[in-house]
């Protein structure tokens, strides 16, 4: 039995990036640690003396639970309506901005617009929009809508680009018109994934929208500010437990919905 094969596998024509990439990442981590060494030592030692202030039992009194529930409902409303509106607007916009759009000028315009929308963080939207629409849930909904429309359209565009276009080709080969190819060849392939992305975004938005209260755009963030400013933090812990329960519940609900549509 010979040890080596007489046929040699040719090497891959693609460059190897693993080693360079790993070294650069490691260098970056070391640099960040070194750059902040004083702060790291200072802040980590700060925690030591304050266990009694931080580690306290959650407060499950009826009054607190009632308060948290009502604010949480606001946050869920903001996330739900904001994501729904965002997804509805993102669908036509992402079609315009994808390669299917056809008109190069419109495609570029839509892409630039979406890139702009996407570049601004949610908390900024919340802050700016409360200046126009005032404090409250409505501002929160508008902020989440604009924010999710940016992110969802990016995911939709990628989804359209990765779409297996053989189905569209086969519909086209029957002599169907442009709109029919879209309606029968592309939409049925895209919609389930669009729905899944939107539900995932809803789930994430519940977490993201909770910060909106900090700038006055409604929801649980208002309580975060309140509870976080008065130690001991019993109520803050209640809030965290609530978060866990609500987010897991919504996650399960979304999974069920996605499964049911498959």
């Amino acid at each position: 039995m010979s040890a080596t094969s007489p046929i040699k596998c040719p090497p891959s024509p693609f460059p190897k990036l693993n080693f360079i990439g790993l070294s650069l990442t490691l260098l970056a981590v070391l640099f960040i640690l070194y750059d902040n060494k004083e702060e790291i030592v200072r802040n980590l030692s700060l925690v030591q003396g304050n266990y009694d202030k931080y580690l306290v039992a959650p407060d499950f009194s009826v009054k607190v639970i009632k308060q948290i529930t009502s604010y949480f409902i606001d946050t869920i409303e903001i996330a739900f309506l904001g994501t729904l509106l965002g997804a509805v607007i993102a669908l036509p916009l992402s079609l315009l901005a994808s390669d299917m759009g056809g008109v190069a000028f419109v495609t570029s315009l839509a892409r630039v617009f979406l890139a702009f929308v996407r570049s601004i963080p949610l908390i900024f939207y919340g802050y700016i929009i409360t200046k126009f629409f005032g404090l409250g849930v409505v501002s929160g909904i508008i902020a989440v809508m604009i924010y999710s429309l940016g992110i969802l359209s990016k995911q939709f565009i990628d989804e359209i680009a990765n779409l297996d276009d053989t189905v569209a080709h086969s519909v086209m080969s029957t002599g169907a018109g442009r709109f029919q190819v879209f309606w029968y060849g592309l939409l049925p392939e895209l919609l389930p994934n669009f729905l899944a992305f939107s539900l995932l975004r809803f789930e994430i938005n519940i977490r993201e929208a909770s910060i909106l209260g900090v700038v006055g755009a409604g929801g649980i963030g208002i309580l975060l500010m309140q509870y976080g400013s008065m130690p001991p933090y019993n109520k803050l812990w209640t809030l965290i437990v609530f978060f866990f329960i609500v987010v897991v519940a919504i996650e399960i609900l979304c999974r069920w919905t996605i499964k049911a549509t498959k």
Partner: peptide
């Protein structure tokens, strides 16, 4: 088509 090219969700 060789790989059928059908709409799987229809």
């Amino acid at each position: 088509a060789q790989d059928y090219c059908l709409s799987n969700n229809s």
